[in-house]
Amino acid sequence: MKENVMRNTVNQTIRLVALMAAFIPVAMFAGDKGLQAGNAFPDIAGFPLEGKVPNLKDKVVIVDFWASWCGPCKESFPIMEDLQSRFGAKGLVVLAVNVDDDVQAMNDFLKKHPVTFPVVRDAKKKLVSAVNIKSMPCSFVLTPQGKVATVHKGFHGEQTRAQYTKEIEELIAGNPSRK
């Protein structure tokens, strides 16, 4: 009698633990995949960002999420600057969105790595949460219609530069407002 009760209790416990364990991977890896190519990018003007958001209408835009503590972001900045200087007159806007908790950390970084493209700060993390990036840095190349053309996760030096260049050239060539 006592053994039966014990056996049932053990069985019940094992079943409960197995059931809970089955949900662990679901809980850990659940969630959306973030913005994909073809999705509409959220309206940046609708988010409480620190800094001035430039006019993005009919522009090819690179929205680059970065932080001062992110090593690859440091590497990416000169290349972003180069892209802005090469394609800015042709309709490209690089918009860097900082996600630092500390504004001083961002300012110190920008003093060391000055750039001419606009930088805004997502202090409340509303935009970055809405976009739900999967790595740092993460950049979105947007079409003049405001749709995501490509997503760049991480930064891989010259390979990433070549990809950006190709994508921007194609988008600028296909942008009716530039013809």
Binding site: T9, Q12, L16, M20
Partner: peptide, 26 residues
């Protein structure tokens, strides 16, 4: 069937599980 043990295990799992946080990249 006494439910104390499964309940205890369940509560322990819930308490420990709440410590699992998915840290976002930012």
């Amino acid at each position: 069937i006494p439910l104390k043990i499964p309940l205890l295990v369940g509560l322990s799992c819930a308490a420990l599980g709440s410590g699992c946080v998915n840290v976002k990249p930012w």
